[in-house]
Design a protein around this nucleic acid. Structure first.
Lengths: 349, 349
DNA sequence: GAAAATAATGAAATCCATTTCACTATTTAA
DNA sequence: TTAAATAGTGAAATGGATTTCATTATTTTC
């Protein structure tokens, strides 16, 4: 029913082998013969049967992507970057959502293995050591694109979560904030959230601010969780002057809550986020955040994976993409606030 | 190197055929034999070679998804729904982004055909008639999940863009707005944007408001385009009392611009969006919009595709998912505004 | 208990491309 | 001109499953 190489061979008056050679690497075929074959291919609109090819060659030009929470803007852009670079390099993508569940991850891993994927990108927040050992067992090239994995065998591409979180907290501290609350990610998130936590602690220590675990409210990276975390923060710590949400969506949720309570941002409370998604520019006040490019992360991940697949030398299997502090309207210096109050006090006095 | 059925057969002491039967449909196999085979499968951790299976059976349990602009929250959720339902039904997903380019769509269509996908979901804004005829030629089950396609042969699942746009414009009109501006989608978008446009026109006609094409500024569904569209609107039509952006992101961008200009929302200008993405609840003012569920749309699309693949009867190959007007803070009745003004006038008088 | 029917299994063909090996045609070297 | 080397091509083996057809065991029927 479908056109096969045999049909092409017959029409071109050559053998199967020759057709195959023309379609892959015509170096061994006379130009004239190649032309005949090409003509037949076009005339019949021949399309290769990929399964047959994969069966024989054991390479699929397929890359598996297993992610979770990919509807988040940052990760949606990551996927976009992955897709663009994969396409560029001749790979197609098999995409599966694990919902952050180990079982589903395993499941997809199996399915993808059965499809003989050439490599796999994992975007998984709560990796378990089990997953790591399974992945290693599979002998399939893997890149983690969600956080730093210390295991030296594992390649990963990620923003430097520790440094980035450090930078933004340091920024708050240098602005004079001492009473800071945090909306962290799920405790199960062993990658991004835990790393950012480490960066926070580091910055606090260097600024000689006591680390108080109570000031870390757990969220799940959604608007909603940011909103309700802010509520808890305001109740428990009415004196905070700054909130650092571990991603922009939670920051936006928090801002919404604060505004509902008629708390002025940044005059009374500064709010900062993480990721630097487009949205941050358009909310009111525009969000101060530390920006990383999901798209870039996607490109780099495929780049590294491609190198592993092709057994190219890799200088370093831990790659960090750049991050940048973006100061907008949701923060100010605590001094400024003080100044204003002083002015008011002066007026009164 | 990999474990094959042959290995399983040998270990279990049966023939290849028997192993295959056990793994597919053991109805013809003695229970005892089946157990032996199962045990061998487990012992060897046998994984089927999918390419071999597909080659033989010509069915892949693969569904292709070709989309564009999938980083938009609504579409990201659509993809999530597609993935969830596809997984549920035993399909894996091959995912490609077309960037809205015909050539890339064609390309992916070819690649996917070569991989013997069982069906395909198209989320493409500017479909060309070319694409339609190609798709028809391919004889592969297809579902459009992005808008209404009139061609009776083509199945589609979509919100009723005409009705939804009608509803929200009617809502504005009934609130007393006569001077409305619109931020539409790209003119190339023959689906969502053009349909919404039709809904708008219908509502305007029924409310006896003259249709003025100048009042429709073209955007591209991004925050940024909503922002600059609002700028144009305010310059050209300083008297507008309402803006309808054809999606929520553009509405958010518009709101940002209006706020920068110290224009009060909704007191001076009401703003409405389309889609009902989560974000709308958290911006200030919370966005009035017409809500559809991307996730739901995804589920329904796979459901329909699955039916086509299995040659089940389909009552109607045009399916609409529900939409709902969600009134929040970004709109008010023009009367209320008038009342306030009257009060002010009275105060003055 | 023999014949007929059914259940359970295996051998071999098949799906479609790639690739090795063998062979012929053409060049090059001597 | 002949021997040696190389270029170009084809036949056949191969990858790993499914499935048809044939065959052997087992039941059922009379």
């Amino acid at each position: 029913m479908d056109v096969t190489m045999k049909d092409v061979a017959k029409l071109a008056g050559v053998s199967l082998s020759t057709v195959s050679r023309v379609l892959n690497d015509s170096s061994l075929v006379r130009e004239e013969t190649a032309r005949k074959v090409q003509k037949a291919v076009e005339k019949l609109d021949y399309q290769i049967n990929d399964s047959a090819r994969i069966l024989r060659t054991n390479t699929s030009n397929l890359i598996g992507v297993i992610g979770a929470g990919m509807e988040r803007p940052f990760l949606a852009n990551l996927l976009k970057g992955i897709e663009a670079e994969a396409r560029e390099r001749g790979y197609a993508l098999i995409y599966g959502d694990s919902d952050g569940e180990f079982e589903k991850e395993q499941n997809y891993l199996n399915i993808m293995k059965q499809k003989k994927i050439d490599g796999i990108i994992l975007i998984t927040t709560n990796y378990y050591n089990d997953l790591l050992s399974i992945v290693k067992n599979y002998q399939i090239p893997v890149v983690f694109a969600s956080g730093y994995i210390s295991d030296p065998e594992i390649s990963c591409v990620t923003v430097d979560n520790v440094a980035a979180a450090y930078d933004i907290v340091e920024f708050l501290c240098q602005a004079g904030h001492k009473d800071i609350a945090f909306i962290k990610g799920p405790d199960l998130d062993l990658l991004a959230s835990q790393e950012r936590l480490r960066g926070v602690k580091l910055a606090l220590r260097l600024s000689e601010i006591k680390y108080d675990p109570n000031r870390f409210i757990e969220g799940d990276f959604t608007f909603e969780s940011g909103y309700s975390a802010a509520k808890k923060i305001i109740r428990k710590f009415p004196d905070v002057t700054a909130i650092f949400a571990f991603n922009d969506e939670m920051a936006v949720g928090a801002i919404r809550y604060l505004k509902e309570q008629n708390i002025k941002i940044p005059e009374e409370i500064s709010v900062v986020g993480f990721d630097g998604i487009e949205l941050g520019k358009y909310i009111d006040p525009a969000l101060t955040t530390v920006k990383q490019s999901g798209y870039q992360l996607g490109l780099k991940s495929i780049d590294m994976l491609n190198k592993i697949i092709n057994k190219e030398k890799i200088e370093d299997n831990k790659v960090f993409i750049p991050h940048k502090l973006v100061v907008r309207e949701s923060t100010n210096k605590l001094n400024e606030l003080t100044t204003k109050e002083e002015v008011i006090i002066n007026n009164r006095g």
